[in-house]
Amino acid sequence: MPHALGRFLAKRLGLSLLTLWLLSVVVFLGTQVLPGDPARAILGPLADPRAVAALNEQLGADRPPVEIYLSWVGGLLTGDMGQSYAYRSPVAPFIEAALVNSLKLAGMVFLIVVPIGIGAGVLAALHAGRPVDRAISVAGLSLTVIPEFVSSIALILVFAVILRWLPLSATWPPGAGPLTQMQHLLLPALPLVIVLFGYIARMTRAGTVEALSADYTRTAILKGLPWRTVLSRHVLRNALLPTITVIAAQMGYALGGLVVVESLFRYQGIGSLVLGAARAKDFAMLQAGVLVIGGFFVVTTLAADLATAMLDPRLRTGGRR
């Protein structure tokens, strides 16, 4: 029943579009309606009312909110993200450059954390209840809650200041090759790896433990299959599927963590861009940046759901009978 998959895809896509739309409303409310008077927020409480009115007119904030929203969304759909107040130039090029940088950093993070996290999770599950498991679980759990700025400082101190193994700056010299870039990205990536490791390991462990105790695993053992085959063909195949979704959900989180890491390492990514816009009350830049981050999350979860659907026969071939 391939059309069951088609229906699932269509439904999932529709929901993603709906989420994106709601996201734009939330971001709009947060940046345009909540502050009340954007110009007043920018210029401060002591500013001349005439200057405030003039700025509001310049920002287009003197129009009714619905009109502002529609023109904003209309602009977004044609690729126009508005004018930055702080830089007095279009927002879009800034976002684009920052997004590329952030994706490089996030890619680096996942390159490291996915294999380590899944490996540790499987290892813990196979030794469930024994010291290895406890060690991985407690370490993973404790590392997960350490704020990035805390672990960053420890890492900087050890690797950049004392040992001097890694460059402190995340920004590589112009024209640097991919290897040099990765070397510069390693230190900023590690705090995020630390935060995500525990989560991925824990989810992998839970999925694997469940599959290990499942009846179908017992069936496989009772067929007399070698343990390796039982593990790869019956246990991991069913255990790792849900982990994909979990990892995808963390992509969005990683982009949030970038705010702290990028600002700490002075890296020109989407996180530091959003933070800078927030500090400067550059609302056009802020809303564009936040929307891009949210949109990225929506796209990755969609991709993960699609991947799961492709791999899971229950979704691929439709419901019971």
Binding site: L15, L18, T19, L22, L23, V26, V27, G30, T31, L34, P35, A41, G252, Y253, L255, G256, G257, V259, V260, V274, L275, A278, K281, L286, V290, I293, G294, F297, V298, T301
Partner: peptide, 23 residues
Amino acid sequence: GRLLEVMLSLPLIIVALLVLVAL
């Protein structure tokens, strides 16, 4: 559920930042 998913689709720090800038 849809509204909650929107909230969850933004990293917590970002949402908090957004609102704290405004308020």
